[in-house]
C-alpha cells in the first residue's frame, strides 16, 4: 500500500512545481487570422513586462465575440468589423469596446500549380462557383474553353472571419455559400488539399499563401467594374487595387479592461510595435500615420464601431479608414 500513500504526495509535488507566476493577466481570443499578430505582441510585451501574463487563444472572430460580449475576454481579435447583433449583446452585458484597426490582409484564391489554363477569375465567375445552390461542377461551366474536368472546392469553415469576408465580398451576403466544399478552420489544410488535387480551387488568408508559394498557384482576381485582373501582393493590398478581396484586421478592446494599467500598456505596446510585428506575421501594415491615429483613438477611449455594425465590409482601403478616423 506504500504506493497508494505516495499518490497524494505526487499530486502535491506536481502542484508545487509551478513557479511564482505573474500577478496580472490579459485574456485575448477571437480570429485565427489575427492570432499570430497578437501572439507576437504578447511575446514581445512579456519580455519587457515579465509580471503580466498574456494568454492568447483563437476560436474564430464570431466565437471570440461571444466570449467578449460576456466579459470573458479583455481583447477580441477580429478579421471583420463587429456586427450589430454583437454590439447589442455586448451592450446588454454593459460592455463597451474600442475598435482598433491593426493591419491589412488579402484573401487569396488558389489552384493547383499543374492547372495551366486558369489565368484569372472575375468576381462574377467566383460567385457562380460558390453561391448557394450553385450547380457548377466542372471548369467548362465556369468559362467556355476550359476543360470538362470536375472542380474540387476548398475553403475556410463557417466560424472563421475569412469565410464571412469571402462570402460578403463575392456573394454580397455574409454566410451565403454552397455547402458542398471541404471546409476547414485551419488554412494549412486548404493548402494541403489544393496542393494535392489537380482540379482544386480554394480560398484562404494571404499569409498562408505567401509561405506556400511553391505548393499552390494564386489566381489574379478581376473585381466588378475593374478592367484588369490583379494578383494579391503587399502593394496591391495596401493601395486597395486588389479588390474586393482585401480586408482590414482589428482588435476590439473592452473599454473597462482598458482602464487596467496592464491592458492599457499592452495595447499601446501593440500599436507602437505593429509596424514590425504585422509584416513579421505575414500581413500588411498600415502606414505610420494611420497607427498614430489608431493610438490617438485608443488614448481618447473612443468607443463604438465606425462601420455601423455592418459586419464584413468590402473594399475598405487604408484611405477609407484614415478618412473615418480623421472625421472623428
Amino acid at each position: 500500500m506504500k504506493i497508494l500513500r505516495l499518490l497524494p504526495l505526487a499530486a502535491i509535488l506536481a502542484f508545487g512545481c509551478g513557479e511564482s507566476g505573474p500577478t496580472t493577466s490579459i485574456r485575448i481570443d477571437g480570429s485565427s487570422t489575427v492570432y499570430p499578430i497578437s501572439a507576437a505582441a504578447a511575446e514581445d510585451f512579456g519580455l519587457v513586462n515579465p509580471g503580466v501574463s498574456v494568454a492568447v487563444s483563437y476560436s474564430g472572430t464570431g466565437g471570440g465575440f461571444k466570449k467578449f460580449e460576456n466579459g470573458e475576454t479583455d481583447i477580441n481579435n477580429a478579421s471583420r468589423p463587429i456586427k450589430q447583433i454583437e454590439i447589442d449583446r455586448a451592450a446588454e452585458h454593459g460592455i463597451e469596446f474600442i475598435e482598433l484597426p491593426v493591419a491589412f490582409d488579402g484573401l487569396s484564391v488558389i489552384v493547383n500549380p499543374k492547372n495551366d489554363f486558369i489565368d484569372y477569375l472575375t468576381t462574377e465567375e467566383l460567385k457562380a462557383i460558390w453561391e448557394p445552390g450553385s450547380t457548377v461542377g466542372s471548369w467548362s461551366q465556369v468559362r467556355s474553353g476550359w476543360p470538362d474536368e470536375g472542380i474540387e472546392l476548398y475553403g475556410a469553415g463557417t466560424d472563421s472571419g475569412t469565410f464571412d469576408y469571402f462570402t460578403e465580398a463575392i456573394m454580397g451576403e455574409s454566410g451565403a455559400c454552397r455547402p458542398d466544399y471541404t471546409a476547414s478552420e485551419d488554412d494549412n489544410l486548404t493548402i494541403t488539399g489544393v496542393a494535392g488535387d489537380t482540379n482544386a480551387l480554394g480560398f484562404l488568408g494571404f499569409a498562408y499563401y505567401v509561405t506556400s508559394k511553391d505548393l499552390v498557384k494564386v489566381v489574379p482576381i478581376e473585381g466588378e467594374g475593374r478592367d484588369e485582373p490583379v494578383a494579391p501582393s503587399s502593394e496591391t493590398i495596401m493601395t486597395g487595387t486588389y479588390f474586393p478581396l482585401s480586408r482590414p484586421l482589428f482588435i476590439y478592446v473592452d473599454a473597462d479592461a482598458a482602464e487596467r494599467p496592464e491592458v492599457d500598456s499592452f495595447v499601446r505596446f501593440y500599436i507602437e510595435n505593429a509596424p514590425v510585428l504585422v509584416p513579421e506575421s505575414g500581413y500588411i501594415q498600415l502606414p505610420a500615420s494611420a497607427y498614430d491615429l489608431v493610438l490617438k483613438r485608443f488614448e481618447n477611449r473612443v468607443t463604438g464601431s465606425v462601420f455601423g455594425g455592418g459586419g464584413a465590409t468590402v473594399g475598405v482601403s487604408i484611405e477609407d479608414i484614415l478618412a473615418r478616423e480623421a472625421a472623428e
Binding site: 502542484f15 509551478g18 513557479e19 505573474p22 481570443d29 492570432y35 487563444s57
Partner: peptide
C-alpha cells in the same frame, strides 16, 4: 474549455490560465 494557444507563463495556482 479555453486552454490558451499562446501563453508565456506557467500556472501558479489552480485558477491561472
Amino acid at each position: 474549455v479555453g486552454a490558451a494557444s499562446y501563453i508565456a507563463s506557467t500556472p501558479a495556482s489552480p485558477m491561472d490560465r
